[in-house]
Design a protein around this nucleic acid. Structure first.
Length: 545
RNA sequence: GGCCUGUUAGUCAAGUGGCUAAGACGCCGCCCUCUCACGGCGGAGGCAGGGGUUCGACUCCCCUACGGGUCACCA
């Protein structure tokens, strides 16, 4: 068999020798130890929450080592392409502060290794496919889908390995003439891989997270180039990551079992394989069972988190705690630092899949937000509201200073309040600070007589002075309490609750409900200061009507 | 089903032959306190099961059970 002739027959349009591309995309000039990583999503829909894991790991590895992190779009499946998906990918990662040194952007592609979109690289793939054919390492296959399907059924029935090999590799012995004739007849073909050696042995490969992993040798004649001339994932991966000089491939564990095939391909192409890291799948709980977090699950889309109002840092922070178990300790020790200051370690990564935990995410998020300044919170909140809550946005932008004052309540210092985890909760939290949103939503327990309530409110209304210090302010409440036989001292009250109608806390509660509409609120004194005397009095009086 | 891979409290997890088995979230209680939140203190709760190896196993080996992955002209 004249492989060179065959290669020419199969890929007559290839213009360049593969060496052309080797020199067009030279080895990167980077310091020793610098890692080149990428994420390579396919534009088949919205970005999955799980995508942020490999993205973050890749980003950290590259940035921490002075390397390069880039975005490549793997759009080799025409059928599954979704319009707008690329834009969605870029915007989603941007929201979470994950930026790329090279690759696809909203405007153009940047970097010296372009194109970074696989559908624009077909000629490159064909060049290397041609090389493989000319070396007898790949061959064309003209089998119909029915043939393949029948073989598969038979193999399944006989409990044989499924694939295109041995007696099932019908096209492997086609002569050059036969192939030439089929091509002249306009027959489509796929290009299949013929492994160098068919060993059928178990091979041990190294995964940076899992260590030595044993995988069975792959010799199933897998497809390299589909009949439409576009490569499959594995072939594109080998060519691209070699030519783009990727050093570390970080991907989900669903790829683990194909590492061996990847290795074979790199070897056959004469490439040095990258190092692999397979991240365990994020799980979710379905009733009592753990299962892979899939696109159908609630909380699987990155966009949902944006829409619900999770701060970018909250999500990153949470993911980092899952990725590196010592992250939380570091965060406690360094509350002021940005997450990128953390020194990320591959060694600290676990190899079993973790379960997504909303409670934990929310806790992390509350901490993140409690560490922000009021201005910070305001800026992010309004950015969120401008997209997802127009009415709220209007209020926030109408009086920025006021909103910031409201957001300042209980903020700052080591005991900063932790009232909310997502921006969408702020609307309710802040609502009573706006007159047309204010409403009494909580009821005062019926055990208190309305006469007492009214009396307390009226007394307070008549003596409230917004220039009072907090001590004087509270002293007045205590006086009111005493006058109504509500114990002004909590400790005394607890010793003998029967002796009183209630306590000073109850009086405060009456006032709180009248002023805020709620049983619970941040510090009442401060709330009143923010609302201003006029509104406080109006609310106190209107409650009495 | 074959092959691969994993299993420390409800969840995330330290831990690499010798400790009363860290910590965080959640839960419960107490304290602080005008409520809530915060903070402080305390509590319940765990090495999947069975065999080995060893003076000694959460740690090493085997088996079982139970998760997860993969077996496409999808990535």
């Amino acid at each position: 068999m004249d492989y060179r002739y065959l290669a020419e027959l199969l890929y007559p349009d290839v213009k360049h020798d593969y060496e052309y591309y080797e020199s067009l995309y030279p080895v990167r000039n980077l310091p020793e130890g610098a890692k080149v990583t990428r994420i390579a999503p396919s534009p088949t829909g919205y970005v999955h929450f799980g995508s942020i894991f490999p993205a973050l790991v890749s980003e950290r590895l590259a940035r921490q080592s002075g390397g390069v992190f880039y975005l490549r779009i793997e759009d080799t499946d025409e059928k599954r392409k979704v319009k707008g998906a690329i834009e969605d990918i870029i915007k989603s990662f941007d929201y979470f502060g994950i930026n790329f040194d090279e690759g696809v952007t909203l405007k153009e592609q940047k970097g010296n290794y372009e194109p970074y979109i696989q559908s624009q690289r077909v000629e490159i793939y064909h060049t290397f496919a041609k090389k493989l054919v000319s070396e007898g390492k790949a061959f064309p296959c003209f089998c119909s889908e029915e043939t393949i399907e029948n073989d598969k059924q038979l193999q399944a029935k006989n409990k044989e390995m499924i694939g295109y090999y041995g007696k099932y590799a019908h096209c492997i012995n086609l002569t050059c003439n036969e192939i030439e004739k089929k091509i002249k007849d306009g027959k489509k073909f796929v290009l299949r891989f013929l492994p160098d050696e068919v060993t059928k042995n178990n091979v041990t490969v190294t995964d940076l997270i899992r260590g030595a992993v044993t995988i069975t040798d792959d010799n199933t004649g897998r497809i390299l180039i589909k009949s439409d001339g576009v490569p499959t994932y594995h072939f594109a991966h080998a060519v691209d990551d070699h030519l783009m000089r990727t050093t570390h491939v970080v991907r989900g564990e669903e790829w683990l079992s194909s590492v061996i095939f990847n290795m074979q391909l790199f070897l056959a192409l004469g490439f040095k394989p990258p190092k692999y890291m397979h991240i365990s799948t994020l799980m979710t709980i379905d009733g009592v069972r753990k299962k892979k977090l899939s696109k159908r699950d609630k909380g699987s889309g990155l966009k949902e988190y944006i829409k619900n109002g999770y701060a970018a840092e909250s999500v990153v922070e949470y993911v980092l705690t899952l990725l590196n178990s010592n992250y939380e300790d570091w965060r406690r020790a360094n509350p002021e630092l940005h997450w990128s200051e953390f020194s990320f370690s591959i060694k600290k990564m676990g190899s079993s899949g973790s379960l997504f935990d909303f409670a934990k995410l929310n806790d992390v998020s509350k901490n993140v937000i409690s560490n922000m300044t009021a201005l910070d919170v305001y800026n992010r909140l309004i950015a969120w509201a401008s997209k997802f809550d127009k009415e709220f946005y209007e209020k926030l932008s109408y009086d920025k200073e006021y909103a910031i004052v409201v957001l300042s309540i209980g903020r700052g210092g080591p005991k900063s309040r932790k009232d909310f985890a997502v921006w969408s909760e702020l609307r309710h939290y802040m609502s009573f600070f706006y007159d047309n949103w204010f409403e009494i939503t909580d009821k005062i327990n019926e055990k208190f007589s309305s006469a007492d309530i009214i009396a307390a409110l009226k007394k307070f209304a008549s003596c409230y002075n917004e220039n009072d210090t907090q001590d004087i302010w509270f002293g007045k409440i205590k006086d009111i309490a005493a006058s109504l036989n509500y114990c002004p001292d909590m400790k005394l009250y607890k010793q003998n609750p029967e002796a009183y109608q209630g306590n000073v806390g109850d009086i405060s509660m009456f006032i709180r409900v009248a002023v805020t509409g709620r049983i619970n609120s941040p510090d009442l004194y401060t709330v009143m200061q923010v609302l201003g005397k006029e509104r406080v009095i109006v609310r106190l009086k209107s409650y009495c009507i």
